[in-house]
Amino acid sequence: MAQLSVDDITLRFGGVTAIANVSLTIEPGQIYAIIGPNGAGKTSLLNCISGVYKPQHGRLVFEGQDMASLRPYDIARLGIARAFQNIALFRGMTVLDNLLVGRHIHMRSGVLSGMAFWGRARREEIEHREIVEDIIDFLEIEAIRKQTVGSLAYGLRKRVEVGRALAMAPKLLLLDEPMAGMNAEEKEDMARFIIDINQERGITCILIEHDMSVVMDLSDQVAVLDFGRKLAEGTPDEVKANPEVIKAYLGEELAIEHVE
């Protein structure tokens, strides 16, 4: 059974249609890439999945549960985590605290037990600190764990962003351009992390990425969006050969030459 099925959704902002009748099926354990030119509706689609936007038409079903009436914080509890495109870390917090916020849904201590910092609240902090430290090890960010996020370099912030989503122990991870603005070396690191997240931790990934070589190497399935419509869907090789896709990416004339 599909883990997430996006069924014929349409999202409009006033007169602008950001997503038009898009359907996707994401199987458990996949790395599912969504590609497309700027403004194609990729991030809007992720916003629909994480509940920030509500599509006017269509259904989103995650593991058999209809997500129509769920708020973003409910969806987080279902097991969907997200790393944002333009880095939405909590700037004033340390790396450690950022990751610990990721544990929020798995923790229980309230105001009073927190203020007392005694017994269960303290045990809980230590317990979740261990889980977070595990992720810090995995992402190789030990050296910066106590630094304020606002003081970090861009590449590291991207990594912390992924770490924070990972701390939620999700079943489905939405990665919105995790490699944008990175140099080759950083991209390689990030690709390695994504493969490990997918294979060792068994987390399904939806990946938005512009770097085609990364997309083709990493993903099991690729969907192509253009002007809010789904142009194509299939394995990387199928998509690469699709004339519609070539047209959207390279332009009409070139496409004809390419086909010829």
């Binding site: 708020r71 985590a81 700037r91 004033g92 917090m93």
Partner: peptide, 16 residues
């Protein structure tokens, strides 16, 4: 603090 720094991100992380 999460609500102060990035409210949308906080909400997506399960904070009401």
């Amino acid at each position: 603090v999460a609500v102060r720094d990035r409210d949308i991100a906080a909400e997506v992380m399960g904070i009401n």
